[in-house]
Computed example of a mutant assay.
Amino acid sequence: MKSLRSIMHKLVLVLLVFATFQIRGQELNALVIVNSEQVQSSNKQVYSTLQSSISDYINNTKWTNKSYKPHERINCAITLTILEQPSANEFKGNISIVASRPVYNSTYQSPIFNYIDNNFSFNYTEFQNLIYNENSFESNLVSVLTFYVYTILGIDADTFELNGGEEYHKKAEKVVNLAQQGGFSGWNRIDGNNTRYQLNENLLSPTYKDFRSTMYTYHLKGLDLMSENKTEAKTIISKAILNLNAIYNTRPNAFLLRVFMDTKSDEIIDIFSAGPRINAVELKETLLKIYPTYSDKWDKIKV
């Protein structure tokens, strides 16, 4: 089984390549991949149909009441890996999501959300329409896709305005509440940790408000300033990351800390392992404390 780090690295590379192409869409430019290599099936065509249906659903749905210019659309890559097919219309596996946003005055795409949801099962009949009903549960496939679309929109908006994604996180919350009627795992408090329920609850909870403020400061006040003043931008980014201490001090095993580090760790290393150098002693110590899993990465930070 490939490590999360390896999978995420490959997905980021796919996303960055994909970002150079302009395709149809509303708010999202989504590259969708359905991987069925681990499943023996007499009908492989269903996976191609599923991939096309998901791509059409995500890219051609109008998710907000805002107008997005082509260059403003959010680039993302969504990969469904099918691990089991218990019956003709039943599928089990995982779904990975990578999303990015452009950095001001550059061609660089900064990752804002890298995540693998391992608790994913759904029913799908070939050629069925994927339609979201905001007033009732229709299918787990549609609910999961819709949930992650709104989560991407929310996190993206949070990087441009403090708590700017509240509206979309609330819409994702509505998806969670409706999906609880379906009986699938991942939507309820009792389903454990690192679930869709927990992700949404944490994003909306005042307990973890520093995650969203960090995302805002890191991107709009930090990365977007890079083209003008790298030293100042790096100082601001460092302070934004240090702000996560507030979460660690009350919830050292917080789900959102892992989400942040899995998303931003490689970028953090790229920023702080090259010049111009700033005093990053406190940053390095904080990262080693908050997320020692990536200690090999943090060692590359030039202090």
Rank of each mutant, 00 (worst) to 15 (best):
T79P: 00
S213C: 04
R196K: 15
L4R: 12
N243R: 14
A157G: 09
I82W: 01
V281R: 13
P276Q: 04
R212A: 04
V17W: 08
K230D: 04
G93F: 03
L204S: 07
I278D: 12
H219Y: 07
P206F: 00
S6F: 05
Y216R: 08
I237H: 05
V149Q: 08
L288P: 05
Q198H: 06
I112S: 05
I190E: 14
F160C: 04
K230C: 01
M226G: 02
K92L: 09
N29Q: 15
N193M: 11
S121L: 03
Y248I: 02
S100P: 02
F272H: 04
T159Q: 11
L15H: 08
I278R: 09
E126I: 11
N194K: 15
I269D: 10
D270A: 11
F122G: 01
F137E: 09
N135D: 12
R196C: 10
G275D: 13
S238F: 00
T49W: 11
A254F: 05
T81I: 06
N200I: 10
L153T: 01
I58V: 13
E267N: 10
A240V: 02
G93V: 09
Y108Q: 05
L283E: 09
A99E: 06
S53W: 10
Q26L: 04
K230F: 00
Y108E: 09
K239Y: 05
L199S: 09
F147I: 02
R189M: 12
A157M: 14
E228R: 15
Y47M: 12
Y68F: 14
S227Q: 12
S265P: 01
F113E: 03
V259E: 09
E201I: 01
K92D: 04
A254E: 03
Q128Y: 05
V175S: 07
K2S: 12
L178P: 09
E173G: 00
Y218V: 01
R189Y: 10
A172W: 01
D158P: 13
R251M: 06
T151S: 14
E90M: 13
F21A: 06
Q45D: 14
D299F: 06
L244A: 03
S273G: 11
L162K: 15
D210A: 04
L288I: 11
K44A: 06
T79F: 00
E90H: 15
G183R: 12
I112Y: 03
A19N: 14
A233I: 07
R24T: 12
N202R: 06
N279Y: 06
S213I: 08
N140F: 05
S106C: 08
T151P: 01
K62Y: 02
S100Q: 11
T207W: 02
K171V: 00
I116N: 13
R73Q: 12
N65V: 03
Y168V: 00
L80K: 07
Y104N: 12
S67M: 08
L16H: 12
I271P: 05
N89Y: 12
I33L: 14
R5S: 09
V17C: 13
K170A: 02
K174I: 01
M1P: 09
G165V: 03
T81F: 00
T217Q: 09
S41M: 06
G165A: 13
L225N: 14
Y47E: 12
L130Y: 04
L283F: 07
S106M: 08
E27D: 12
W298V: 00
T231S: 05
A99L: 07
N188F: 00
